[in-house]
């Protein structure tokens, strides 16, 4: 079975994740890449990111996800995303803290393109959100999101919580909040903290096995991995237990290896733990 056939059959997920960089202006308590302002950047250059999008499309993938670190700390990010969005639809995970005031203009190249910004908001109130994500984070997000929506950008909200810890009341209040911004419930994700990276050091999150993670191909500067949750960092050392290949381009190399691994899985092993 080719990679394209596997995607069409649903054996392989149709999205490729790209870690654009690992540094971040925040230092979230559960960050699985231990990202912070002091992190090694591990940036994947724009030419490689665009090449991944090209080759992903040729192989039959249908979507690109970009994550980090905080991708928008890169000055070339918007132009790179725009180039990628000419090839495949792109979802960019961001903390939205870089869009204050006139700086929101950095998103201009993305308006009108098949680009979706997925923005983290972990609680309906500042205190519990900022406890996890850093001072003033709540205020910056509620300032940025409606202005992004107003500019015509599609926005998704992602709420990351300790498994089972989001109360019905808080869930309802989060939904009320995003609906006021014109974001409907389909664009609100609630997902568990996974015990990797900083979450492992702080004892947060759910432990998981490889086969509980959707086998999405994820590429970073230091290799290609099983799942967007594969290229994690612990103690400033890159984890390798979900590493597929060090080669990321040509993308067929890790994609074919991933397919071999997926085909070797026992039937019914593809349960996931609510991660999108």
């Amino acid at each position: 079975m080719s990679v394209r056939e596997a995607i069409e059959a649903g054996t392989l997920p149709d999205r490729v994740w790209i870690y654009s960089n690992y540094h971040c202006n925040l230092e979230c308590a559960y960050c699985l890449t231990e990202s912070s302002p002091r992190s090694r950047r591990r940036s994947l250059d724009a030419v490689s990111m665009i090449a991944v999008a090209h080759e992903a499309a040729e192989l039959g993938f249908r979507e690109i996800g970009v994550t980090g670190g905080e991708p928008f700390l890169r000055r070339d990010l918007a132009a790179t995303i725009a180039a990628m969005a000419a090839i495949l639809p792109v979802t960019v995970l961001t903390n939205a803290t870089q869009f204050s005031g006139d700086r929101i203009a950095m998103t201009d190249p993305l308006v009108g393109l098949p680009v979706r910004l997925q923005i983290s908001l972990d609680a309906p109130d500042p205190e519990p959100n900022d406890e996890l994500r850093g001072p003033d984070n709540f205020a910056k997000v509620v300032d940025a999101v409606p202005r992004l929506v107003e500019r015509g950008l599609r926005v998704r909200i992602a709420t990351t919580v300790e498994p089972g810890r989001l109360s019905e009341t808080d869930h309802r209040r989060l939904c009320e909040l995003h609906r006021t911004w014109g974001i409907d419930d389909d664009d609100h994700l609630v997902r568990p903290v996974l015990r990797e990276g900083r979450a492992d050091a702080t004892g947060m999150g759910a432990r998981f096995e490889r086969d509980q993670l959707p086998p999405e191909l994820a590429v970073a500067e230091h290799g290609a991995f099983w799942s967007a949750f594969g290229p994690t960092i612990r103690g400033d050392v890159a984890d390798t237990h979900l590493l597929i290949t060090r080669t990321i381009l040509p993308l067929a190399t890790p994609a074919s290896a991933l397919l071999r691994l997926v085909e070797g899985r026992p039937q019914g092993a593809d349960a996931n733990i609510g991660i999108r």
Partner: peptide, 13 residues
């Protein structure tokens, strides 16, 4: 170089 142990063994190997 770091010699990979069983806990960190990459999937293909």
């Amino acid at each position: 170089v770091d010699l990979i142990d069983a806990e960190r063994a990459p999937l293909l190997v």
